[in-house]
């Protein structure tokens, strides 16, 4: 009885915390206009907001997907061998590397944007997808190293030693043995790199100067402007941009929780 009461309270807490998410969905199903007239339930849902969102932001959504996937691939390719090295090799450089990663978390994105803008301006990476992928790796790589390392610390050295006795080189042993066994933590690190990149707004805002390459976060920002013209299209775009987070949370619950804890504390 008492435990059921706890569940009821828990559901109520969740309703309060997730109300804005519900409201986003609700407002996206309302008729268009510059005022918000939504009742608590979308009794007469219309999809005109979504139609408009796809028309105006469809290309931007594709841009965001490409950038996010690129960030995942590049971040994991760079972070995974390094995480393995930091977990298994014995060297005084290990603690220096870890310290560098911790310090990197303190550097505001605007500092990175400032420097990358001037560098990109010179080498022609402004307004480009590779430019944004590289910038987004600044959140993907350190996080992936921390997550992957905390898992790889638990690998017994004998695992790789056995393969080495059979004559496999360090790199081959890494690919054949360490990578398959680290599948779950690779998924966690990949999911977070995707979300970080998908959510990026600062680099999108500062490292693009004209219309060509425009991730969807920037699209929403431009919708917001000073006066919102079409709330339903804004909210429909917001819902579409929230989908990866929602899908990942439901489909990959245990990975996400592991990432939240592993990346922050370890």
């Amino acid at each position: 009885m008492r435990r059921t009461a706890y569940t009821v309270i828990g559901v109520l807490i969740l309703c309060v915390m997730l109300f804005p998410v519900y409201w986003m969905l609700n407002a996206s199903l309302q008729p268009s206009g510059n005022t918000l007239t939504a009742g608590f339930l979308p009794l007469h849902p219309t999809f005109s907001g979504y139609k408009r969102a796809f028309d105006e932001q469809g290309g931007n959504l594709v841009t965001s997907v490409i950038i996010a996937v690129g960030t995942v691939v590049l971040s994991l390719a760079i972070a995974t061998p390094c995480a393995y090295a930091l977990s298994q090799f014995r060297s005084r450089w290990v603690s220096i590397g870890l310290l560098a990663i911790l310090i990197s978390q303190m550097i505001p994105g605007i500092v990175i944007a400032n420097a990358l803008y001037t560098a990109y301006e010179r080498i022609g990476l402004l307004n480009s997808i590779p430019g944004l992928i590289i910038a987004n790796c600044s959140s993907g790589i350190p996080f992936a190293i921390l997550i992957l390392r905390s898992f790889m610390m638990s690998l017994p050295p004998s695992l790789v030693e056995a393969a080495r006795v059979d004559g496999a080189g360090l790199f081959r042993a890494f690919v054949a043995i360490v990578l398959p066994i680290s599948k779950n933590s690779l998924i966690t690190a990949g999911l977070f790199s995707f979300l970080f990149s998908w959510s990026d707004f600062l680099f999108a805002l500062t490292l693009t100067t004209k219309g060509g390459v425009r991730p969807v976060t920037l699209g929403i920002y431009q919708y917001l402007g000073t006066q919102v013209q079409n709330w339903n299209a804004v909210m429909a775009t917001a819902v579409l941009s929230a989908i990866p987070a929602i899908v990942l949370l439901i489909a990959a619950q245990k990975y996400i929780a592991a990432g939240a804890i592993g990346g922050a504390v370890k």
């Binding site: 997730l18 976060t217 919708y223 917001l224 929230a242 987070a245």
Partner: peptide
């Protein structure tokens, strides 16, 4: 775990909402 959602949403989505 569902409580994690606000933290995972893109910040600009939360701002718009």
């Amino acid at each position: 775990s569902l409580l994690l959602l606000p933290w995972l949403l893109p910040l600009i989505v939360s701002s718009a909402t």
